[in-house]
Design a binder for these strands. Structure first.
Lengths: 136, 136
DNA sequence: CATATATTTGCAACAATGTATCAATTGATT
DNA sequence: AATCAATTGATACATTGTTGCAAATATATG
């Protein structure tokens, strides 16, 4: 699925910045930060547009925004091929050493029975540690 | 346990800013953000000292730092009375409406069997939704 | 209690992230 | 091709966090 098809599929207007962002995320194929994306996009698009694009794309379910620490936000494309899981149900692994973020697609977020009165909308799990490469 | 005892217990030097921060957190008795703490502390201590104090206190296990979204970090005192759980093992609930953070002490973080080679150090769970007050 | 020393503080400057406003541009529809 | 709403890009600003360094302070020692 290319950028144009993804945008159509989510009923989001096709614009140059959005296409560029999606292509950059596709190239990366792992969650990327703003600075990492900027390197790939060149200094063409300004930060305001970037943030607005990311917000639009996240609301439409095109991308998925993961906060690791603050001052470290990563974005990843949602997998449109296998149905859209806008509310991601998998666990994220963050390597404390190489700062990479890995989607643990096999590990699902748990179900919790909340005290009565609470209403759950999303659940996020981040495991920190050392990835395969750094754990040697 | 008062601020002085807490600092002694964790072998951290007793200084005015640290005592003030601990007392403010004790008064609040729920995770507070920097701006919330600043309101309580008065504009007496500067931000650099605040950040350094929080880092020292977190490393010593006195407090617990929780990142909700980025640009929204909350701090809470660890419960020294009932043993020190420096690596908190409970789930956090964040109310999307009133922006309050609630420690779900009864709900424990899950155990995951990671793929071989990965080494887990911490696990963090944040549930987002509506708290009892806002869910009406 | 006074003193020495290592830690901590407070200030200034800086860097990164994110938001608000608004005119100019662009995309989709007719 | 023309229209109109949505989006962009520029400027300015707010918040969060870091670095370097001199002054102040906390603890240990005599």
């Amino acid at each position: 699925m290319n950028a144009t098809e993804i945008l159509q599929h989510h009923e989001v207007k096709k614009t140059a910045p959005r296409v560029a962002i999606i292509q950059a995320l596709q190239k990366g194929r792992s969650p990327l930060s703003e600075s990492e994306l900027k390197d790939d996009l060149g200094d063409f698009y300004d930060r305001t547009t970037f943030y607005r694009s990311m917000q639009t794309l996240a609301e439409a379910g095109v991308i998925h925004r993961i906060v690791v620490d603050n001052v470290l936000v990563k974005y990843v494309l949602n997998d449109c091929e296998h149905g859209h899981h806008h509310q991601p149900d998998h666990v994220h692994f963050y390597c404390q050493q190489c700062k990479s973020l890995i989607c643990m697609d096999e590990l699902k977020t748990p179900f919790y029975q909340l005290p009565s009165g609470f209403k759950q909308q999303t659940c996020e799990v981040i495991i920190r540690g050392l990835c395969v490469k750094c754990n040697q």
